[in-house]
Design a protein around this nucleic acid. Structure first.
Length: 921
DNA sequence: TACTTACCGCACGTC
DNA sequence: GACGTGCGGTAAGTAA
């Protein structure tokens, strides 16, 4: 306690904080005084509390510093100091001096650097240094002789070395590294995107320092890891910028410098201060000063007149001159109608009030027939500035003949969505000839296919960002409230970009016969068929699901109680983290394996194993299974019933998976349980209306059949040609027993092996799913390959072909790119190799069922039948069939499905009928 | 500093 | 093996 104290106040950091944190105080002359008030209060308190002998209050000087030289964008984003704060700067300097503080303001040197320099000098001269700041950056200065105090925090916090470590998770000498990784938005110093305090501290803890992190950049996973790699070049400069300099030259700026005596805290200038308090209306302090009793504070609250930040400059215009017209009169509309009537191909885009195609209503429509030109018809824009618009219904009536004329060819981005939207207004658009999303999907399935991504990739143009237009999150406004002029630019651009994209992409597709087949004969017709399926929806027995939910809820409560009793305390059974805490810390169960993040794993495999010796894991497993059923299915599905149709309408994503499969969302109808009895019950709620049945038709062993076809393995071909049970046949070969002596266990093994092969599983994966030693699994695989040498040959060939070309193909010419089969590191490359085996089979299966769906739909239409496709689940089509059409469907649908391709083995589709989806299997 | 949003990891459903 | 969804937890971003 004997060391003298040097107290350094970061005046600039408190300036802003006091200004923002305090109410808008006014002095007698109406001047804003909030910041002055805040600073005075703090300086008084600091002086009283710290008992310093030497002190300085340091401010940033005006003008550039060395950091601006290193990095011109430094603090460039920072809004200019508000006028009413600027006006308080001089008074603050004045009053701080009156309070007896040396004030320091050094041109060319920021307050931080001056403080750093003073702190080092003070420590060297035997002082205990206290730095008062609201800025975390100065934590880098902390040493045994230098501590930090933040008086703005609710309980003022003092940070010594241990405190810094506790608060930031890194020691003071790693604060620079920590700040470098995070960057500083306020000073416009970038760090690594998506890295905040937690991630920065974690990385530094893992790798020791910024240099360690940078050296191991390739090992860091996730988006943040990618961002780190992108930032590697920048980080040294970032580090330079966030480093506080402790070697500044302060000569000539402090009277009496370099003797520290220059920084002696002087007595308060009472008369000067009284005058100041009087001028600023600080009555309480004035009375305090003159010895009177304190009076209650007066606050003259007045709303701050915050001027809007000036709008961001708009980017310079692109080279191609673009003219988009807003159609507000019939004359304008008719002129454009004449253009699209005459055009060979028109791009079309709708703006709506919902992302859900089944619910969306039109807000505006845009057209384009050539690059650079587009028209937008605002129809339901609202707001004070919205112009008089043409009436929606009348415009749609005018456009309807053109929209429904199949000879007028149209083009769009994700046309399935737009066709729903028009259908919501009673218009069945015909003549959709192209979809840029599907074009992109056929060319490069592994990339993303949003319009802005396509524009960026192919046109080198970013397009107006939807979020710039409407905002995001809670602040997003409906499109109808977007300014019509801006909406015209946005929507017009969408249509116009479609024109350009198609001109670019279509020739690339047409240059390859296979791709062209996939695009024209598979994807485009599938899009139309899917629109029908989505629109039809599926009938759900909500009350049945609710009853199931109820029952599940009761069982869950019971399980919960039992689990709490075993654990001796309640916990969240849905949280792996809390489960881990109870299981491994409280109850002391052995940790079987860890997750990628290093936490003890509580996955099914682990709990299964632990369940052999302990009671709780089994309860958790059962709970998990039931909770999943309840939350995902029995609770959720009834909520997804469309009130207008009384049915559930999923959306099929046609451009998501790399293999060509569809995916289904909101709700996902492709993962409704089937394996367990409890899960299957959910399928009982998928029902048909009175007088109808559910019919399910699924391809039998489609991927194995495709494997037989592609590999031409004689054994496999024969098994299918002779109509054998393939798994039994496989078992017979692998185990070397006659067909009729295959045991059920042998058949089960063979079945798993077959699936493993299709999925490109190695010995490891097979061992896991069979629960056997890896060596035994390898033996089976080897035996399989000697018996089915053709399969082995196919796999080797496809792998090397994939490595050569960088992609594999389906039977119909769909391409699946595997960029990592050439580059890529060990495991990724192995993954790509597995993909190269699996993708042609899975992709061909996807092609086949798409063709089947189109063929069946066409036949239903041609015959004018009322049977409707209601779902597609990878190898299965589900129908809602009037009883009168049941016989036809049972006979013809399997025939149509089997007939979409002639393979070297028969395609077989099996059909089932029932009152609900469960029964139909 | 408090609230909202975004993302990640986990678990699990299907094929 | 692939895919997608939903949940809990935490980090980041934003407004006050």
């Amino acid at each position: 306690m004997s060391k003298p104290i040097l107290l350094l106040v970061d005046g600039s950091s408190f300036l802003y904080r006091a200004y923002h944190a305090l109410p808008d105080l006014r002095g007698p002359e109406g001047q804003t005084t909030g910041a002055v008030h805040g600073i005075v209060a703090m300086m008084k308190k600091l002086r009283d509390d710290i008992g310093a002998e030497h002190a300085a209050c340091v401010f940033d000087a005006k003008g550039p510093t060395f950091r601006d030289e290193w990095y011109p964008e430094y603090k460039a984003q920072r809004a200019p100091m508000p006028d009413d704060l600027r006006a308080q700067i001089e008074p603050i300097h004045e009053v701080v001096r009156l309070l007896g503080w040396p004030v320091l303001e050094v041109p060319g040197i920021e307050a931080d650097d001056a403080i750093g320099t003073l702190a080092r000098l003070g420590a060297a001269s035997g002082h205990q240094v206290v730095v008062a700041t609201g800025d975390k950056d100065l934590a880098q200065l902390v040493t045994p002789d230098v501590s930090l105090i933040n008086t703005m925090a609710k309980p003022p916090e003092r940070l010594d070395e241990a405190g810094v470590l506790e608060k930031f998770g890194v020691p003071p000498d790693r604060i620079i590294d920590y700040l470098t990784l995070m960057g500083d938005a306020v000073d416009n110093v970038p760090g690594v995107e998506k890295v905040g305090p937690k991630t920065a501290a974690k990385w530094i803890a893992e790798h020791g320092s910024l240099d360690g992190v940078m050296a191991n950049a390739d090992k860091i996973k996730g988006v943040a890891g990618e961002n780190l790699r992108k930032a590697l070049d920048w980080l040294p400069m970032g580090r330079k910028l966030v480093t506080v300099r402790c070697d500044c030259d302060l000569d000539g700026h402090v009277p009496g410098w370099p003797a520290l005596g220059a920084l002696a805290l002087k007595p308060v200038d009472e008369s000067g201060l009284a005058g100041f308090y009087g001028r600023y209306g600080f009555k309480t302090w004035l009375k305090e000063l003159t010895g009177e009793l304190p009076a209650p504070k007066t606050k003259a609250a007045a709303p701050a007149a915050a001027p809007d930040a000036s709008a961001a400059p708009t980017p310079p215009a692109a080279p191609l001159e673009r003219r988009y017209e807003t159609l507000l009169s019939w004359e304008q509309l008719d002129a454009w109608l004449a253009r699209i009537e005459a055009a060979p191909l028109t791009a079309l885009d709708t703006e709506t009030d919902s992302l859900d195609g089944m619910q969306a209503r039109i807000v505006g429509i845009s057209f384009a027939v050539e690059p650079g030109r587009a028209a937008y018809i605002p129809l339901r824009h609202e707001g004070p500035d919205a112009p008089e618009q043409l009436p929606l219904d009348a415009v749609l009536a005018r456009l309807k003949p053109w929209l429904e004329d199949a000879s007028k060819k149209k083009l769009g981005q994700n046309i399935k969505y737009d066709s729903h939207v028009f259908m919501n207004h009673g218009i069945a658009v015909a003549g959709y000839a192209h979809d840029t999303m599907l074009q992109s999907y056929v060319l490069e399935a592994h990339k993303t296919h949003g319009l802005s991504a396509l524009a960026e990739r192919h046109l080198g143009r970013s397009g107006i960002n939807y979020e710039d237009l409407c905002g995001k999150g809670a602040h997003q406004i409906p499109f109808a409230q977007v300014d019509v002029a801006r909406a015209t630019e946005y929507s017009g651009e969408d249509s116009e970009m479609c024109v350009q994209l198609s001109e670019l992409l279509l020739p690339q597709i047409q240059a390859e016969a296979g791709l062209n087949f996939v695009y024209e004969q598979i994807e485009l017709p599938t899009s139309a068929a899917l629109a029908r399926v989505e629109r039809t929806g599926v009938l759900i027995d909500a009350s049945r699901l609710q009853a199931q939910s109820h029952e599940l809820a009761q069982r869950l409560v019971a399980l919960e109680q039992q689990a709490y009793e075993i654990a001796g305390q309640p916990f969240n059974m849905g949280s792996p983290k809390q489960i881990g805490e109870i299981l491994f810390n409280k109850l002391g169960l052995p940790v079987v394996k860890k997750t990628a993040t290093g936490a003890p794993s509580t996955d099914e495999e682990v709990l299964d194993k632990l369940a052999q010796d302990y009671p709780l894991p089994a309860k958790i497993l059962e709970y998990r299974g039931l909770a999943k059923l309840k939350s995902t299915y029995t609770d959720k599905l009834p909520l997804m019933i469309n009130p207008a149709t009384g049915r559930v309408h999923t959306t099929y994503a046609q451009a998501v998976t790399v293999t060509g499969r569809l995916s289904s969302n909101e709700p996902n109808l492709q993962n409704i349980p089937i394996r367990t009895a409890e899960g299957r019950k959910v399928r009982e709620a998928f029902i048909a209306p009175p007088g109808h049945c559910i019919v399910s038709a699924d391809y039998s062993q489609i991927e194995l059949r495709i494997m037989a076809h592609i590999s031409e393995d004689p054994g496999l071909l024969r098994a299918f040609q002779e109509g054998q049970d393939v798994h039994r046949a496989t078992a017979s070969e692998v185990f070397g027993v006659p067909l009729d002596e295959v045991t059920s266990e042998q058949r089960r093994y063979a079945k798993t092996i077959n699936f493993g092969l299709i999925y490109g599983m190695g010995a490891f994966g097979l061992a896991q799913s069979l629960g056997i030693e890896q060596k035994a699994a390898k033996d089976y695989i080897d035996r399989y390959f000697t018996r089915f040498a053709g399969v082995k040959r196919y796999m080797d060939e496809t792998k090397s072909r994939a490595a050569e070309l960088g992609y594999v193909q389906t039977l119909f010419g769909r391409r699946i790119y595997l960029p990592e089969i050439k580059g890529g590191n060990g495991p990724r490359r192995a993954g790509a190799e597995r993909q190269s085996i699996n993708a042609p089979m899975q992709g061909t299966a996807a092609d086949l069922i798409k063709l089947a769906m189109v063929a069946v739909q066409n036949e239903l239409d041609a015959r004018g039948l009322a049977t409707r496709i209601i779902m597609q689940v990878h190898d299965e089509l589900v129908f809602e069939v009037p009883e009168a059409e049941l016989d036809w469907v049972k006979a013809e649908v399997p025939r149509l499905m089997a007939g979409v391709a002639q393979l070297k083995v028969p395609l077989l589709a099996e059909v089932g009928v029932g009152a609900n989806w469960d029964e139909a299997h």
